[in-house]
Design a protein around this nucleic acid. Structure first.
Length: 806
RNA sequence: GCUGAUGUGGUGGAACGGCAGACACCGGGGACUUAAAAUCCCCUGCCGCGAGGCGUGCGGGUUCGAGUCCCGCCAUCAGCACCA
């Protein structure tokens, strides 16, 4: 007699298996390089004070399922976890509550780790990294110094995006729309010395590399748009009566004959240089002040209504026609893109057209095909009014010819421009990696010697940023004052720290050898594990984080530190989980669902199952409490199947067919991240099994094997109860039997003129020819087609028979 | 404005150009219970008593056959926003 089956109690079995996995080091990557490897990666979390909400584990669960399957398929799997722990929220919390950010970070990490462990993820916790650990950021600083050594770090005085509330300089990426990424307050423009990383030097490589990796189309597209490469030409317009030349950038140098004016950005430096020759300088100054008041956000709101002012007394000479054209100032031209000045061709650029209409400037057509009295024509057509370019109809040829001519004159050259800007790399905050540079009055900027890394953060009492926009580190004399490593004289340290993006730009490399104190990672480990085979994360990181980390990796490849040019072979992204009201989950809306509560209610396995079942993985989807309970019901049914288990392989051919179908579908769907349909198919199988008087051990085991990546605790427990000493995660992934999928008879639909009119059973192996000849004579078919003239018969094997009648 | 995605029952969602609505949730009915919960069984796109008809945002088209492909709209979401 079998012992009675106790009730399914996840609160008991889940902690039990989590303990066993930890004690047996079940999911640590094997040191040996004998097996084929699989490196699965999720974006390491920022350990915020709020803890996880149910959105976070979606990515983790998906990758956990894939990694658990890979282990069963015989791979040596690296599935690491770590903490992207530098960052403003922690620092702001520290300021508010007067605790050290390191302490806050430690507590938050412990909280996050407990939550992740509660969900049973098969992370290799022996390889945890923490970006705030000096043993980690030593190598972040090391990479920075390598970038510095190779001329990819530079300092520039520019207008920066400054957040008065956070008291910090922001990158363009962090201040989209004129709002601070952290506090969402208004950003103002402030002149400042800023450290930049020359990511634009890698713009083409970042584009080219996309062709060699497996990213979905929409992710690759976003990166391409972000980089924003355009081909064109730089052309110089002499300033009449001077030796000065105004350089512009254009994508259509072939429209030079249509230039009727020029526009410069209000901040353009030539204005000050020639202030003496500008008759209406007072007016110009007033306009510039007006523009300076506007944030970038406001400037972009005035899409239609163009403003500007003419520079009286200055004109520019068209290098091809010799004609003098007026120069205007307008804020529709940005100092930060191209050269800060444009040649205006109102006939063929809508913004120029609007400006010309408003200021009464001539509009000359040089490309035929539109009606330039109504709007600018931006299409193709034959060139007119354009001297040697007349008659050209091919854009490529006319552009090439125009570039050739300006080159001959020494007034232009072909060139490319990118929307992407260099990466502003300093923050005036405490809780970041100190930038390992020293300002020496004699030697200039000098790198901290490698052997002095890590350059640690000094202990301070007060983390509040300085009122002058300086880092709290600037207030610590013992940190600031140092000796120049080159000349030995008195010098001062850089007091800014790195942005949060720094630590996350290379963490995947540290995972392969996290405890190494000689190099950032052993070369043999890098060669074995890299590249990351599959990286899943959020859509919000597919531009910034992905480009930054690809940039650093490509640089490390160039200097011979890693052997693969791209860090991630495959990238996917999950959709966001929304609150039940369909809104984004947020503390302020009060609609956050805490995974602790869900696990207490339905258990971790049901939680994981629902996260994957609720909808298409890459779509945003609202959480549903009742929906999540459906997954718990499903696991209850699996648990109760134990009551039906009897010895044997297979009794029911019908069940055997569903079983094999399910193994096949689950195996294939996991690879496509179609977890919802994989689980739906397992539900169908369980419904089928529940309907049987008994199920065999073999059938039950197969179900457990394919379900175990989704519901690992439950499957381990039943597996053990079936008498196995070896854990289920060590078992091979089951194969399916194609032969078992074959059925003798299939039901097909009978259509008349494409509309379903009946169903018939036919032998499964009926060929198309035989079916189309014989089936119309089938009595059931005849009943449907009685009295009609058959024109055509179409048979789709296994699906349907369509009879076209008159 | 540009780019991308999405649009299917009361809800989340399935569907190599081939039986639309798999699998769930909700709801309804029944069984078991003193009762409730849990569980099990049945029903559940819309209209219609029925035969049948209508149905995948809207309008066209291709096809024997369209949720799926093509053309033109509309709506929602996301990203970028005067990029010369």
């Amino acid at each position: 007699m079998t012992t009675p089956i106790p009730a399914y109690n996840p609160a008991e079995i889940e902690p039990k298996w989590q303990r066993i996995w930890a004690e047996t080091h079940a999911f640590e990557a094997e040191a040996s390089h004998a097996k084929p490897k699989f490196y699965g990666l999720i974006e390491f979390p920022y350990p915020s004070g709020a803890g996880l909400h149910v959105g976070h584990p979606r990515s983790n669960t998906a990758m956990d399922i894939i990694c658990r399957k890979r282990r069963m398929q015989g791979y040596n799997v690296l599935f690491p976890i770590g903490w992207d722990a530098f960052g403003l929220p922690t620092e702001n919390y520290a300021i508010k509550h007067h605790v050290h950010p390191a302490k806050v970070t430690r507590e938050n990490i412990d909280h996050f780790r407990r939550q992740l462990q509660m969900l049973g993820f098969s992370f290799d916790y022996s390889r945890e990294v923490d970006t705030t650990d000096p043993n980690y950021f030593k190598w972040t600083q090391w990479i920075f110094l390598k970038l510095f050594e190779h001329g990819l770090v530079f300092r520039d005085k520019t207008l920066v995006n400054y957040c008065p509330s956070c008291k910090v300089v922001l990158s363009n990426e962090d201040s989209q729309g004129g709002k601070c990424d952290v506090c969402h307050g208004d950003v103002v423009q402030l002149p400042k010395d800023v450290w930049y990383l020359r990511i634009t030097a890698y713009a083409d490589r970042l584009l080219e590399g996309l062709k060699t990796v497996d990213y979905p189309e929409n992710i690759a597209m976003q990166q391409v748009n972000w980089i924003g490469k355009s081909q064109g030409a730089f052309v110089q317009f002499p300033l009449a009566g001077t030796e000065e030349k105004i350089e512009i950038y254009t994508t259509r140098p072939d429209t030079l004959f249509g230039v009727t004016f020029m526009v410069m950005a209000p901040e353009h430096p030539l204005i000050d240089k020639y202030a003496g020759r500008i008759a209406n300088m007072a007016e110009v100054k007033a306009y510039r002040e007006e523009c300076a008041k506007k944030t970038e956000f406001e400037r972009t709101q005035l899409v239609k209504d163009k403003t500007g002012v003419r520079l009286e007394g200055l004109t520019a000479v068209n290098p091809l026609t010799g004609k003098e054209v007026p120069i205007y100032l307008s804020d529709y031209v940005m100092m930060g893109y191209g050269t800060g000045a444009i040649m205006a061709v109102p006939a063929h650029d809508q913004r120029d057209w609007e400006f010309a209409k408003k200021f009464g400037i001539e509009i000359i057509e040089v490309i035929q095909g539109g009606d330039i009295t109504k709007e600018a024509y931006t299409g193709d057509g034959p060139m007119v009014n354009s001297g040697f370019l007349n008659g050209y109809t091919n854009k490529k040829d006319s552009i090439a010819r125009a570039v050739e001519e300006v080159e001959k004159l020494g007034l232009g050259r072909a060139g490319v421009q990118y929307k992407m800007k260099d990466w502003a790399f300093n923050r005036q905050r405490y809780w970041g990696e100190p930038i390992p540079l020293i300002h020496c009055p004699k030697c200039g900027v000098v790198a901290v010697p490698y052997e002095e890394l890590p350059l640690r953060l000094p202990e301070v009492e007060d983390f509040e940023p300085g009122q002058d926009g300086k880092s709290p580190l600037a207030r610590i004399p013992s940190f600031v004052h140092c000796k120049c490593p080159k000349c030995g004289g008195d010098a001062e340290r850089e007091t800014d720290t790195m942005p949060q993006w720094a630590g996350s730009s290379w963490y995947f490399l540290r995972y392969v050898d996290p405890h190494n104190d000689k190099v950032f990672a052993d070369r043999g480990e890098l060669d074995y594990w890299m590249p990351v085979d599959w990286y899943n994360g959020g859509m919000e990181h597919v531009t910034r984080h992905l480009l930054y980390s690809r940039f650093w990796h490509q640089f490390l490849y160039d200097i011979g530190e890693v052997s693969c040019p791209e860090p991630y072979a495959k990238r996917t992204a999950q959709g966001m989980i929304l609150a039940e009201d369909g809104e984004k989950m947020s503390k302020s809306r009060g609609n956050v669902i805490n995974p602790d509560d869900v696990v207490a209610e339905i258990g971790a396995d049901a939680f994981r199952c629902y996260e994957m079942f609720m909808g298409a993985f890459d779509q945003a989807i609202p959480w549903s409490v009742t929906g999540s309970k459906g997954c718990r019901k499903f696991l209850d049914r699996v648990w109760r199947l134990q009551e039906k288990v009897v010895a044997g392989d297979s009794f029911s051919p019908a069940l055997n067919a569903v079983l094999n179908e399910t193994v096949k579908k689950v195996s294939e769907d996991i690879e496509k991240m179609k977890f919802n349909t994989a689980i739906a198919q397992m539900m169908t199988l369980v419904n089928e099994m529940s309907a049987q008087p008994t199920v065999t051990v073999k059938e039950m085991e197969t179900l457990l094997l394919i379900l175990s990546p989704v519901a690992p605790h439950l499957c381990e427990e039943i597996w053990q109860r079936l008498g196995h000493a070896e854990p289920i995660h060590h078992q091979p992934w089951p194969a399916w039997d194609e032969a078992a999928l074959q059925k003798a008879e299939v039901e097909i639909a009978v259509q008349v003129n494409g509309k379903v009119r009946g169903r018939i059973m036919i032998p499964a192996d009926l060929t198309k020819e035989t079916a189309e000849q014989e089936l119309p004579a089938n009595p059931d078919v005849q009943r449907i087609t009685a009295g009609k003239t058959i024109v055509k018969v179409i048979f789709v094997p296994g699906r349907l028979l369509n009879i076209v009648v008159k």
